[in-house]
Every structure is written in C-alpha cells, then in structure tokens.
Amino acid sequence: MLRQTRFLFLLPALLLFACSFTPEQPVSKTKEETGLIQIRPSTSSRPAVLKLLEKARRAAKAGQFDVAEAQLERALRIEPRNATLWHYMARLRLEQGRMEQAAGLAARSNSFEHDDASLQANNWRIIAHARYQQGDIEAANAAQARADALAAD
C-alpha cells in the first residue's frame, strides 16, 4: 500500500545533520532548510499528492511554513497512511522548532507499514535531534542508536 512512495534521494542534509549530531555541534538552520527542500517522493505516488508535495516544497523554500503545512495536511488526507508524508510533517516541525511534535510525527511515520529502512532511520534521527534539543540526552542517544542500527542494515 505504501510502497508507492519511496525516496529517490537519500536526504543528504538529514544524513549531514545525523553526522553532525554530537552534543558539541548543534545543527545549523540552513542545513535543515535545504533538507526539507531536497526531499522528493518517487513518481509512483499519485499525481495529486506529488503536486501538493511540490507546493509544500516551494512554500518551505520560501520560508512559508504554514503554507507548506497546509499542503502536507491536504496530501495526508488523500494518503493518510503514507509514511513519507508523515516524515515530511515531522521535518517541518523540526524547522519550526516544535520538537515535541517533530518527535511525535516521526514516531507516527514509523508506525506505518513500510520496509524503507532509510526512512525509518531518518525518523529516528529526527527523534534523536528533538530529544537532544529538549535536553533528554539519554533518549537522544537511544534514538540515535536505533538510527545507526537501521542505517547499518
């Protein structure tokens, strides 16, 4: 069901911020921004959702996070079990600095059926980042370990 949507791009910025995920080196804002912009689903998702994602991408690039959010919500109403869409939503929250929601949405993304290990790893990285920002180092390390394990597979 969810195999329609997959990554074409392996979120270079996410990986960057994953590498940079050390207590001494918080992620810079610009990297996060380019991260959202470079995410693209594969063309096998339905055109309506791709169109909305394109709109969301443009809005996020222009810094209009509310508009991006509205487009992602529209896409989610069409494909509510699309793990990738939930992942984008989590990334958006991360950019908005809403850490609790970012972690919640990333976990929601991982709760759907999908065998995309890199997507799951990226969701765990979002959780790690959010927990770190919230000062919960233990939870951040645990999430990072999950991400690393998935990435190693």
Partner: peptide
C-alpha cells in the same frame, strides 16, 4: 490561526 494536526504517542505500536 491554524489548528494543525498534533500527535502524541501514548502507547507502543
């Protein structure tokens, strides 16, 4: 004002 979707994990999957 927007009232966006919010999620909070309360139970394990």
């Amino acid at each position: 004002k927007r009232f966006p979707v919010t999620v909070k994990q309360a139970f394990s999957a």
